[in-house]
Design a binder for these strands. Structure first.
Length: 509
RNA sequence: GGCGCGUUGGUCAAGGGGUUAAGACGCCUCCCUUUCACGGAGGAAUCACGGGUUCGAUUCCCGUACGUGCUACCA
């Protein structure tokens, strides 16, 4: 199947940077890859009031982190360019005028004040938001109500105007959605949407139809918030290019936050990220936290996003990108919105950290530990440590706590855990143990354990009580893999030093 | 208000006229481990409500409720 999949993106903080937006891109991408189609990224940069500096690059960065590379985009080029809407401006006017000439659209000259007045005048309890539609258009200032010569004069004088679609009365608009199946709308209830704005830029409605046609788009997946404006798009297809050439639609369910639709504010409110990567709004300087910086692996991120609203019918929950491409089918996408659960998101990351091999984990962890000020002299040690502790790390920063003590003597010891069990006898024990270990030339797990146990038996102390103390001495707290493994890994000198230091500390408490 | 979409445990969900209504997250108990995890074994918890249709409805139909989206010269 030859398919072109498109995604349209607005470089604005609300235009698709959040979880739902990334998932929409992901589903598009999976579908395109599975069907050997092209994945086309287009950028909405039409609205100057909403345009945000740096947001376009940010989108590419997020997608790249997720492992998603568009086949065509303003950055990657392609045969259907240009891909930025502002660079296609001239195209849209042509189609808008074609609609006017064929009686399917009209020029409207109403000023914002006049529109506001109309809305105020017509506003009632039953109709709180009056629309510019078949009921009111004949009372407004447009080419339907004004004499032709006056209209052409206004046009010639470059009077401020927009072009609106003229929605039919009493027509049932039908189409098939890949997720919702048969859909139908009453055209009487759809308003005359603006197609071309006063600044000559198209609205989404016009642009999406024209671009999809020109770029030979076969499938268009977008969020469910677009479902109510689908009738406008269907009519545009009918008038302009023919319904038979229209792409297949899929309206994806929404991702919900703890209360209602997930918003970027939910991140700060509930303490979990809602964007793929950190985003600082250049206007407000407000930082929205990203999954990447929170310590998620991109593999886990796309995995958790993919299965939020989709599953393959089996019990499988962990999918790699390749498996997702192979198994993804649009028919199994849910109709209902899904609430995002950060606890489950963390579980996915944990699973991926466990699943990931040491080599792929190493660069990220090394960078992070280096940034935290740890000195990592040798990579084999780091590899060993990662293997040792990765099962106990849910988010990447957990490695700081779980792996840090292998590279640096703990700053503080959990004395509260030790003090209730600390006495002269134990002190003697550890002084002797340090001595024994110091003189041991074969510093292996087995030998360390042997000394530890023999000495315990000799001093008549239960080994269990000693093990926790030794752990705190070496690690600083009650965490980590088997103590003797830790001792062997950090080596004889370090082990003996930590024991001696700890004795001093415990004695001084 | 109008219109659209939706509704299986707290969350993600499988299923779909007759089932003990899968599984996962989270929670609880126990085992393993004299640490924290991992792993293992259990447990509590669900078909929004009301009417139909039917021998039988969680499943089909209709209402209601609730949720959510749209209702801009935003996307």
């Amino acid at each position: 199947m030859k398919s072109n999949i498109r995604v349209r993106f607005a470089p604005s903080p609300t235009g698709g940077l959040h979880l739902g937006g990334v998932r929409t891109v992901l589903y598009n991408y999976l579908f395109a890859r599975k069907n050997a189609g092209k994945f086309i990224l287009r950028i909405e940069d039409t609205d100057q009031t909403r345009f945000v500096e740096g947001a376009e690059q940010y989108i590419y960065d997020c997608l790249a982190w997720c492992g998603i590379v568009p086949d065509e985009s303003p950055l990657h080029g392609g045969e259907y360019g240009p891909y930025r809407q502002s660079e296609r401006k001239e195209l849209y006017r042509k189609y808008a005028e074609k609609l006017v000439n064929e009686g399917n659209a009209y020029y409207a000259f109403d000023s914002p004040e006049e529109l506001e007045k109309m809305r105020q005048d017509l506003k009632t309890a039953e109709n709180p938001t009056p629309q510019y539609d078949n009921k009111v258009r004949l009372q407004m200032k447009n080419s339907l109500t004004m004499p032709a010569d006056e209209v052409s004069k206004l046009l010639k004088d470059r009077a401020r105007h927009v072009i609106r679609i003229k929605m039919n009365d009493g027509e049932t608009i039908r189409f098939t959605d890949m997720i919702h199946q048969e859909m139908s709308f009453d055209s009487t209830l759809v308003d005359d949407k603006v197609l071309l704005k006063a600044d000559g830029m198209p609205t989404y409605h016009l642009a999406v139809v024209v671009d999809d046609y020109l770029m030979k788009i076969t499938h268009a997946f977008r969020g469910e918030e677009w479902l109510s404006s689908a009738p406008v798009h269907i009519m545009l297809w009918k008038y302009l290019f023919g319904l038979e050439n229209m792409p297949q639609w899929a309206h994806l369910p929404l991702i919900l936050g703890p209360s209602g639709k997930l918003s970027k504010r939910d991140g700060a409110k509930y303490g979990f990220p809602v964007f793929a990567m950190n985003w600082t709004d250049p206007k407000s300087n407000e930082l929205v936290e990203g999954f990447k910086e929170k310590g998620f692996l991109p593999e886990a991120f796309i995995n958790l996003l993919a299965v939020l609203g989709w599953n393959d019918g089996s019990e499988q929950e962990i999918f790699s990108m390749d498996e997702l491409i192979e198994k993804f089918t649009i028919g199994r996408v849910h109709k209902a919105g899904a609430k995002f659960d950060f606890e489950k998101a963390k579980w996915f990351n944990h699973e991926w950290i466990k699943k990931m091999n040491v080599d792929s984990l190493k660069p990220k962890i090394k960078d992070m530990l280096l940034a935290e000020g740890f000195i990592i002299a040798d990579d084999p040690l780091l590899e060993k440590v990662i293997e040792l502790v990765k099962d106990r790390c849910t988010l990447l920063p957990d490695f700081i706590q779980q792996a840090g003590y292998f590279f640096k003597t703990p700053d503080a010891l959990d004395v509260d855990a030790v003090m209730p069990k600390w006495d002269e006898n134990k002190k003697e024990y550890f002084i002797s143990l340090a001595l024994l270990l110091e003189n041991e030339n074969s510093f292996t797990i087995e030998n360390i354990e042997l000394h530890f146990k023999n000495l315990a038996a000799e001093k008549n102390i239960k080994p269990g009580e000693l093990q926790m103390i030794l752990r705190v001495m070496l690690v600083g707290s009650k965490i980590g893999p088997a103590v003797f493994v830790i001792a062997e890994t950090i080596g004889k000198t370090e082990t003996v030093n930590r024991i001696k230091n700890a004795i001093t500390i415990f004695q001084s408490v």
